Every structure is written in structure tokens, then in C-alpha cells.
Amino acid sequence: MVVDAEAADDDDRTFYTPGEVHLAIEVVSPESEDRDRKTKPFRYAEAGIPHFWRVENNNGSPVVHVYELDPATRAYSLTGIHHDHLTVPVPFVRVTDFDSDGGRGLLLVEAMATAWGTHHDPEAGTAVWFHLPTNETNRTDGPGSLSS
């Protein structure tokens, strides 16, 4: 999930409002196929979350289905299916190599964020927080740079 930096800064929060969420990502597992493919995208779109990615397993390799919200219909439109690498212009530009063994999630975070870290809660697990640049504070270094 990609959320506003201000919302991510509040360690006491246990949820985000739809207006604070820019991207929702679901990783489909056999137990969650129906929810991740049908229920959750419908609810995210209804809430107005502008971007949704669904990650599927294709014979051991990730496939990312990228959707963008049509504000008129409040439904997602498929903008691409990515097999070997992911390049998207919105909500940010980033190319990811799917052949690496791990760390793709934190690779994305590091490339896009102006700051990031982790917070461990013994009961809830580990959460990754990060600050994404806005138009006023665009990051201009590195391969995941953003520009106005």
C-alpha cells in the first residue's frame, strides 16, 4: 500500500482513510483468490483508491496486473499485465526486475521514498513505513526518480 507521508508518520494509527491511499496491492494466494480478484478490487474502487495492483503467481514467477480507477464509473480499468519487469507511469515511474530472488518490495520502497524504515510490534509483526515525495518535494536522484 502506498499512503500519504503524513498518515504513515502516525505510529498510533491502525487504518488509513481511502483519500490517504494512492495504491493498493494484493498478492493472490490460493486461499484468497476470490477475495483478491473480485471483492477487494470492487471495494477499493468504490472507495476511490486511484490505483490497484494484483500480483499473481505464474509457475513460480510474479505477474502484476495494473489497474487505474476511472473516476466517472468508479471502476478499475486494466492498464497492463507485466511478466518480466514492471514499468508504470502512474502513480510513479519504476522498473523492477522480476528475476531477482527477493527484496523487490523494499527495492521499490528505497527507489521511490525520500525516507523509510521499519517498526516492529511483537503482536502485529513488522510494518514498513516510507515517505513519498509530493510535487513540492520531488526526489531527483536514483533510478526511481520522480519529476513534476
Results as ranks from 00 to 15, higher is better:
N59K: 11
I81W: 09
V55H: 01
L69D: 02
H131T: 01
E20H: 05
D10H: 00
P133I: 02
S61R: 13
H22N: 04
H51V: 04
P133Q: 12
D4T: 14
H119M: 02
T137G: 05
Y67T: 12
A47N: 07
S32A: 07
M1V: 10
E56V: 06
G142C: 03
A45N: 08
S145H: 10
Y76N: 04
L132R: 12
P122Y: 06
T118G: 10
H85K: 15
Y76R: 04
D99N: 12
V2A: 13
D36A: 09
N135K: 02
D84H: 13
A75G: 14
V95L: 13
A45L: 03
T118P: 08
V88M: 08
H82Q: 12
F130W: 10
P18W: 10
V88N: 01
L132I: 15
R94L: 07
V66A: 01
P89F: 15
P62W: 00
P89K: 06
G144F: 13
G103H: 06
V27E: 02
F98C: 01
I25H: 03
H85Y: 10
A8F: 01
A8W: 08
V64Q: 00
N59W: 03
D12T: 01
P30N: 13
N135A: 05
S32W: 11
L107M: 06
F15Q: 14
E56H: 10
N138R: 15
A8R: 02
G142I: 00
H65F: 12
G117T: 08
Y44S: 06
H51Y: 04
N135E: 15
H119W: 15
D4G: 11
F130D: 10
G80W: 03
F92I: 06
D4M: 06
P143T: 08
P30C: 13
T126I: 03
R104Y: 11
G144E: 05
E46C: 09
E33L: 11
E68P: 06
L69V: 13
P143G: 11
D121E: 08
I25L: 03
D101M: 14
R54C: 08
S100T: 11
F15S: 08
F15C: 04
F15I: 00
S32Q: 09
F130N: 12
V95I: 05
G144W: 00
N59S: 05
V66Q: 01
E110G: 10
A127I: 01
D84M: 05
V66H: 09
T73N: 04
E6W: 15
V128T: 04
P89Q: 07
S32N: 05
D84L: 09
G117M: 12
V28P: 09
D11Y: 09
W116A: 00
T96L: 14
F15H: 08
D12F: 14
E136M: 09
A8C: 08
L86Q: 04
G103P: 11
G60R: 03
E31P: 08
L78M: 08
N59T: 10
T39P: 01
E123T: 15
G142A: 07
T79Y: 07
Y16D: 15
T73C: 05
A47D: 10
A47K: 02
P71G: 07
T137W: 12
E68S: 05
N135M: 14
T87P: 11
D10R: 04
T114K: 13
F52N: 03
G117D: 14
